[in-house]
Each structure stands twice: as structure tokens, then as C-alpha cells.
């Protein structure tokens, strides 16, 4: 969903696992939908970690832990590896997350998040491990993500880091514009390119 980004302050959901692949974020059997129904995908986010085969919630999985909530997902490094399925980003957005914090994202998934107005925030390993420790001790810990300033702050410790976001994408996110809006304005350039390469 296109939406404008500014400053987000929220509690977090910690998922301190590394190499979380997109098959875990949304298993293949949920990819058969032909519409972009974010509620459907959100309901099945982390399906096989979140629910038993009989549909009952799996104890111990963080999405089933009432102590944790908020619109920021904090995940271990190499988040979103594997399949290019954008359904993973739809599931994350559909569940209600607007930001994912990790020390490292897989390429395709990172683009998919950005194209769905979910902001991937890359932080240092130190920042991430301190955040996981803080969240384990205090589920009420809040984080502030300031998109215009490109800073992420652990409000419990005050530790703050700057994160990367190119000027183009920042403009898109803060104005709720997507890449297709941009590309559709470039038709002249595309035709020039095609002519020149002949």
C-alpha cells in the first residue's frame, strides 16, 4: 500500500534468527492467490512457525507472544533470502509491519519491501544485538525510525545510527510515489534508447 513515511515510533517484534528465507515468511502453498490481498498474506505470515498443522497457535513463536507487538520487525542477519516471491513483502505489510530492522537483507526481498512501502533498515551487528538483548529484557522497548533524518534510535539506550536510503527512494517513500509512476513518465527516453541502439 502506498503510504507516506515520516517518523515512526513503535514497540518491536524480535525474531532473533539468521537466514530467514522467504519460504518461511510465506510458504509456497499460499502463493496461489491471484490478487494482492494483503490480509490473506498477513494472516499467513510465518505460517509454519506460527501455527501447528491443526491451525492452533504454536507456543513460543514471537507472533503468538502477547508481550510483543508494534509495527517494527527486528530480524537476524540475511533476512529474506531465497525465493523472489513478493508475497513475502505483502505478508509483512499485511500483518501490519512498516519497518524491518536487520543487519543484512537479501537483495531481491529488500527491493520488494521498498516497493511495498515497508522500510528495510540496515543497522550494525552491535546495534542489532543490543536491540535483541533490550527486547528480551523489556518487551515494551521502543524504537524510533526517522525517515527524513535517516536515523534509527533505540529509545531505551538512546543509541542511534544513520541508515542508508538513496535520495530517490527517500523522495518516493516520503511522498507515497512508486517506481512505476516514475517510469511511465520516461517513455521518451525509452524510445530514444531503442532508436540509438539500432
Amino acid at each position: 500500500m502506498k503510504q507516506k513515511f515520516d517518523i515512526i515510533e513503535s514497540t518491536c517484534v524480535p525474531l532473533p534468527l539468521e537466514n530467514v528465507d522467504t519460504d518461511q515468511i510465506i510458504p509456497a502453498r499460499f502463493l496461489k492467490a491471484t490478487t494482492r490481498d494483503e490480509k490473506f498474506f498477513g494472516d499467513n505470515l510465518f505460517r509454519d512457525w506460527r501455527y501447528n498443522a491443526d491451525g492452533s497457535p504454536r507456543e513460543g513463536f514471537v507472533l503468538n507472544d502477547p508481550r510483543y507487538g508494534g509495527c517494527i520487525l527486528v530480524a537476524g542477519k540475511n533476512f529474506g533470502s531465497g525465493s523472489s516471491r513478493e508475497h513475502a513483502a505483502w505478508a509483512i505489510a499485511g500483518y501490519g509491519f512498516r519497518v524491518v530492522i536487520s543487519s543484512f537483507f537479501a537483495d531481491i526481498h529488500k527491493n520488494n519491501e521498498l516497493n511495498n512501502f515497508v522500510l528495510p533498515v540496515v543497522v550494525s551487528e552491535d546495534f542489532l544485538s543490543e536491540l535483541f538483548e533490550g527486547l528480551a529484557a523489556d518487551p515494551g522497548l521502543k524504537v524510533r525510525v526517522d525517515v527524513p533524518a535517516q536515523t534509527v534510535t533505540n529509545l531505551s539506550t538512546g543509541r542511534s545510527e544513520r541508515f542508508e536510503l538513496n535520495a530517490y527512494k527517500k523522495y518516493c517513500l516520503t511522498n507515497a510515489l512508486d517506481d512505476i509512476d516514475y517510469l511511465l513518465e520516461q517513455k521518451g527516453k525509452i524510445e530514444d534508447f531503442e532508436r540509438n541502439r539500432q
Binding site: 516471491r85 513478493e86 513483502a89 531481491i108 520488494n112 517506481d179 517513455k187
Partner: peptide, 12 residues
């Protein structure tokens, strides 16, 4: 690529 990017290529 992701589906949004598929849409970009279809369109442009």
C-alpha cells in the same frame, strides 16, 4: 525480480 518490478517491465 519481484512482482512490482514485473509490472515495471510490463509497463515500460
Amino acid at each position: 525480480i519481484g512482482t512490482s518490478e514485473v509490472e515495471m517491465v510490463l509497463a515500460s
